[in-house]
Structures are given as structure tokens and as C-alpha cells.
């Protein structure tokens, strides 16, 4: 510490304090307030002093007296599985292909990344044109009358296709950036040793890319936990498209103002996220110790 001048110390203190205040003020305080509110029946009207404490009643209602909750949990899990098993590996696969310097690779990149750039409103509109039962492209071309958005057994898959469409582009770009950073001499060495392309990828490139792999994994988990926008645009997260995030919004935002109840849902979501965050941090820290 003796090496640090007075100015240094002031700068360091500021650099620690400002982010700390931001994190506490913008993340931890609201999170704590959400947890507190989840034990009340506040409806957003009246002074804070008049809030009644109802204990676990909101949680009890969520689990036993709120039909959309169970489908929402199932859909969130399904979302995670679909992204993890299909969309993420497919995005990585495309990245590997594009890394081969194919002719027109820029065009493919742009085409695949475009969905990530498009605004949400536009994406909702694009898929409405495709999926609409009476006027949509899919039923128009194939002459079917599948109710893509309305049939609760079908619509979650229809939306997963749309979500995957976006997710693939995102993962592709992340992974492509990582691949470009892999030292070419590693591949050359593998080639000299007579390893096939597949073998080179799984035995050499993939392990080297570990940091990127972890990022991709985390992005996948985060994307599936906070999945919200597409279902909200389609039908506000109802009728087969329930997601916890959409239920929170339905209850808290807007005129409904079931703030206590919505906070209980948000707290449940927070708890689930914490499980994944803990797992991730634990892995990363164990990594660093080694």
C-alpha cells in the first residue's frame, strides 16, 4: 500500500465504491424489496405503512391456487432443454462450418445473425405472418389448418422454433469469434500427426476453447431463464405459452398490480436463477484455484 500515492488511493476507493453503490442500489436493494413484498398483499395503492403482512400465503397461492404456474415451470424447463440440446449445438456447428472460409461466408453470417439484430416487434410480426392459422404462410403453402399459435400442444414448439432461430445466430457469432482466436499452429500440428478433422475439433480445438464454451453455456441458461419477449409479443404468455417471467409481468406491471403475488413469483424465479449462478461461480472459482 505504501507504493500508492494519495491520488491512487482516492481513485481506487472511487472505483470500488461507485460500482458497489450501483450494484447495491440497482440490484440488491430491489431484489431484497421483491423478496420482502412477496410476503405482503400490496396492490400498489396506499402508503407503505398500510401494507399487510400475509406470510407465506402468496407462495401457497402460487403453488396450489394458480393454474398457469405449473405449465410455466414446465415450459421454462422445456425451453432450457430445447436451447441446450438443439439450438446451441447447431449454432456451434454452423460456426465451425463458417470458420472454413467457405465462399460467401459473409452472406451466411449476416443471414444467420440477422434475427438477433431485428427488433422484437418485427420478429413477432414476421412469425405471425408465418404461423397465422387463416392467413399464414405455413398453412397457405402446405394447405393444412394447424392452429400454430392457438393450440396449446403445438404453440410452444412453434415458439421454440422462433426462439431457436434467434438463439442459433447468437451462439454462432460468439463461437465463431472464439474459433478465429484459436492458434492455427495447433491445427497444423494435429494435421501433421494425422488426426482427422473431426478428431482435431473434439480433441484439440474444443478443449482449447473452454472459456468460450463456458460463456456459451451460461448464455444458453440465461436466455432460457429470461425467455420472455417472444411469448409476450404472441399472446402475453397465456394458453400454452406460460413462462414464469411472463407471469411475473402479468401480475406486477400494468393495471393488475398484484404486487405481492407477482413478487412471490419473481422470488421463485430468483431462487431458480441463484441455483444456476451458484453452480457457475463454483465451477469458475474451482477452475481458478487449480
Amino acid at each position: 500500500m505504501r507504493l500508492l500515492s494519495r491520488t491512487d488511493r482516492v481513485v481506487i476507493t472511487l472505483m470500488v465504491l461507485v460500482p458497489l453503490l450501483l450494484v447495491v442500489g440497482l440490484v440488491w436493494l430491489p431484489a431484497a424489496a421483491t423478496v420482502l413484498l412477496s410476503g405482503t398483499d400490496w396492490d400498489g395503492i396506499g402508503p407503505l405503512g398500510e401494507i399487510d403482512w400475509v406470510g407465506w400465503r402468496n407462495y401457497d397461492d402460487v403453488v396450489s391456487n394458480y393454474p398457469p404456474f405449473v405449465p410455466a415451470v414446465q415450459n421454462n424447463l422445456l425451453w432450457l432443454a430445447a436451447l441446450f440440446v438443439v439450438a446451441t449445438p447447431f449454432g456451434m456447428f454452423l460456426a465451425v462450418l463458417l470458420d472454413k472460409e467457405l465462399r460467401g461466408s459473409r452472406i451466411y453470417q449476416t443471414a444467420l445473425y440477422l434475427p438477433v439484430v431485428l427488433s422484437l416487434a418485427l420478429i413477432g410480426f414476421v412469425w405471425q405472418l408465418i404461423y397465422s392459422r387463416d392467413q399464414g404462410l405455413l398453412n397457405g403453402v402446405f394447405g393444412g389448418d394447424t392452429d400454430w399459435y392457438g393450440d396449446p400442444n403445438v404453440n410452444i414448439w412453434a415458439v421454440l422454433v422462433a426462439a431457436g432461430w434467434r438463439h442459433v445466430g447468437y451462439i454462432m457469432l460468439l463461437y465463431l469469434a472464439g474459433l478465429k482466436g484459436v492458434d492455427p499452429s495447433l491445427r497444423e500440428a494435429a494435421a501433421v500427426d494425422g488426426a482427422s478433422e473431426t478428431r482435431t475439433f473434439f480433441r484439440v480445438v474444443f478443449p482449447v476453447m473452454r472459456p468460450i464454451n463456458i460463456i456459451v453455456l451460461v448464455v444458453t441458461v440465461i436466455e432460457s431463464l429470461r425467455a420472455f419477449d417472444l411469448v409476450w409479443v404472441i399472446n402475453k404468455g397465456r394458453n400454452g405459452l406460460e413462462l414464469i417471467s411472463a407471469l411475473v409481468t402479468q401480475n406486477v406491471v400494468g393495471e393488475a398490480s398484484r404486487i405481492g403475488f407477482g413478487s412471490a413469483l419473481a422470488t421463485i424465479m430468483l431462487a431458480v436463477s441463484l441455483v444456476f449462478i451458484t453452480l457457475y461461480l463454483w465451477t469458475v472459482m474451482r477452475e481458478e484455484k487449480r
Binding site: 396492490d43 393454474p67 398457469p68 396449446p152 397465456r238 394458453n239 402479468q250 401480475n251 400494468g254 393495471e255 393488475a256 398490480s257 398484484r258
Partner: peptide
């Protein structure tokens, strides 16, 4: 109540139609 209409009745009527 808007909370009743949007968080209970809408899902319930959709359930009924289904």
C-alpha cells in the same frame, strides 16, 4: 378488478374454449 380480469378470467376463459 383488473388483476382478477387479466390473471384469472383470461386464462380461465381460454381454458374453457379449449
Amino acid at each position: 378488478r383488473p388483476d382478477f380480469a387479466s390473471t384469472v378470467i383470461i386464462p380461465a376463459l381460454q381454458q374453457f374454449i379449449k
